[in-house]
Structures are given as C-alpha cells and as structure tokens.
Amino acid sequence: MELGSADAFDRMGTLGVEEEFYIVDADGRPTSGIDDLVYGPEPPEPLVGRLDHELFEFTIETQTPRIEDPADVADAVTSVREALVEHAGNHGYRVAAAGLHPAAKWRELDHATKPRYQAQLDRIQYPQHRNTTAGLHIHVGVDDADKAVWIANELRWYLAPLLALSANSPFWNGFDTGLASARSKIFENLPNTGMPTAFDDFDDFQTFERRMVEYGSIDDRGELWFDVRPHTGHGTVEIRTPDAQTDPQRVVDFVEYVHALVLDLADRYEAGEPSHDIRREILDENKWRSTRYGRDASFIAPDAEGVVELDTFVEDESERLGVDGLRSLFDAESGTDIQRRIHEESGLDALCEYLALE
C-alpha cells in the first residue's frame, strides 16, 4: 500500500511545476509517441527522471526539479519545455499545449499499456476511456502536515478564480463545447475528483487516504485527483485546477500567485486564524461558473453574502499579496478566446499550429 507520511512536510515555500502536454505530428495532430519519448533513449538532462506519460499514448508530463527560489521559476519552466520540444523533435514529433487538444478524438487514439492505466480503464470504464485532458499542477512545500491540510481547506474558494483565469479548453472531440474549460468538466467525471470536503487535520486526511486504498476505491494515493490536495509523498500542497497553458509566461504568473497565496495562508494558520466554513455547494457552483464562463465568471462570496467579480478578485489579490502576474493573466486575451478566434478566422489547421510549441 503506497501511503505518504507527515514526515514529508519539512520544507516551507519550495516549488514544483508539473505540466501535461500533447505529442503531435508535423501538422500538429495528436499521435502516439510515448514509446519513443518516454521509453526510448534518455532525454536531455532537464528531463532525466522528470518525464512520464498519462493515460493516452499522445499525452506526456514533465516535472521541474524542486525550486528553492521563486525567482528561478521562469528558467525552470522554460528549460524543461525547451528540452521537451528538442527531445520530441529528435524523434520526429512536436509538442502542443492546451487543456484539451481540439483535434483529439478519443475513440481514434491509443491508450497507454502501462498496468496502472489499464487497471484504471478496467475499473472506471467510460469516463476514463475519454479522458484526453491536460492540466497544470503547482506544488508548494509546507513544513507541517496539519498546516498543509488547513491550507488546502482554505485554498478551495480560490480555485474557481484560478480556473477562470486559466481556461484553455473550449474544444473537445472535434467540436466547440460552449464551455470555457471543457477539460474541468470531463476530468470531473472521474471518481475522486473535483472539490474536496474539508479535513479536520492531517490524521483525518491520512485516515481517508488509507481507507480509500484499503477498500479498493483507489490503487494508490496518487489516484485522489482532487482539485487541491496535501501531497503526502512530496510534502506539498498541490493545486491541480488550472488547464494546461500554451504560453509559458502564464504558467509563471500562476505559480507566482499560488506561491504567495500559500505563504499568506501559512502565516494566517500560524497566527491562529480560524478556518472558513464554506458550503460545498457554493464551491461547486463557483467552479461551474468558471467552467462555463471563464473570464466572464463571477463568484459567490465565501460567506454567501454577495458576488465577487473576477476583475475585483484580481485587483484585491494583487494588492493584498503584492503580485503582478494576476493582472497580466486577466488583461491578456484568454486561452479559450484565442482558440475560438483562430478557429473561426482560420480553421482547425491553424489552431493546431498555434498550439504547437516552438
């Protein structure tokens, strides 16, 4: 049984970034490639030990090394991406980035044969068979297990604005879904996903984690795919809400905010601030608003008294935490709008080309 430990939570403020990408051919269309890129010759140095694949043979994941200084995030993200593009190019492939690939039709694509994924397909069936999603996962180190659980609880209200700002997946299975983030809804059809309930402390979370394995709901702790979770192996709080991003600067902007927010919540925990009791239904409603409307979403306030507009959230959080990236994310054209504009003006071929990294 693979379970983590409270002892893993021993560093405060370190960072790690996981990005999921698509392997595509010369025309930017999805194609199987993990045999060459993951199981073939060793990749360039930034990717050694930090390259894996996901459910489909055209999905691939990278991890940065542990980042001690937030000022190094941009270099870490860029070097990993450049190495992946180089590695793919050496084998005749390209790499694309989005929450969903607009040309990916899941019935026509091959699933990975890795036993872990085959077991998931057998257990979960249809929802996992069609799971062509790609996300951005941000890890922030926390130096105490109970603190990590408290922070994860408090982060839940902030996840909907993050999803709204990251929305980058309007197309799925060849058509426009009408959603800003179709990825979030497709992924949420899997078990043990979406918005978690609050946990009392680390013992409460670990008991839940252990029972889910013991009772056969999951094979290992990594299959608790909630939008935010204490990662009991890495000793981090992991935010898993954002869509994968095409532009690396957007990744850097998200990491800047998440890091500042986690440090702020850590200080509030140390100061003895009580946790906020937010109805799960409100959290789910706010996430739905982001899924549907993206940049145009507004959110029910934590106390359910009033509505918070996204522009107000961005301004207030930027001022409160002293970050710049949130404004950049809000002021730029959204990933969803870019995709729809390119598709309408120039068609699917042009959109596939835009999503391919250089």
Rank of each mutant, 00 (worst) to 15 (best):
V85Y: 13
E238W: 02
V17F: 05
S290A: 12
R295N: 03
L190F: 07
L37M: 13
R50E: 09
P46F: 03
A103S: 09
E19V: 09
D296T: 07
E317R: 10
G28Y: 14
R250K: 14
I239G: 05
P115L: 02
R229L: 05
V24I: 06
R279F: 14
H137K: 00
R50T: 04
L263V: 04
V77F: 10
A266M: 00
E18P: 12
L329N: 01
P248H: 14
I60N: 05
P70C: 12
T177L: 00
A332G: 10
E353G: 10
L162M: 14
L159N: 03
P43K: 06
E270C: 00
T336S: 13
T312L: 01
R250Q: 14
G4M: 07
Y215V: 06
L224Q: 07
R81D: 02
D324V: 15
A356L: 02
R327H: 15
S5Y: 14
R341M: 01
V48P: 06
V149E: 08
R107M: 13
F21T: 12
L224T: 04
L55E: 04
T64P: 11
R123D: 05
D7I: 11
T113N: 13
L37C: 09
L159E: 04
R130N: 07
H234V: 06
F313A: 08
F175I: 15
I218Y: 08
P127F: 03
F208E: 00
D303N: 14
V262F: 09
D122I: 00
H259E: 07
R107I: 09
T236D: 01
L348D: 08
V258K: 04
T31S: 11
S181W: 06
L351V: 15
V251Y: 00
S181L: 09
R250P: 11
G13V: 06
L261N: 01
T241K: 02
S181G: 10
V252M: 01
N168Q: 08
D27E: 15
R66T: 11
M1R: 15
E333P: 10
A266C: 00
S79K: 08
L37I: 10
E68K: 03
R183N: 06
L47N: 12
E309W: 05
R341G: 04
D72G: 06
F208G: 00
E333I: 12
Q125A: 12
P302F: 03
A8G: 10
P161W: 03
S217D: 14
E188R: 04
V237C: 06
W106Y: 15
D10L: 07
D200W: 07
A148F: 02
V258C: 04
G222F: 12
I342N: 13
G322I: 07
T31W: 07
Y126L: 07
D296M: 08
R289F: 00
E345V: 01
D176V: 06
L355K: 00
A88H: 11
L15M: 10
E82T: 04
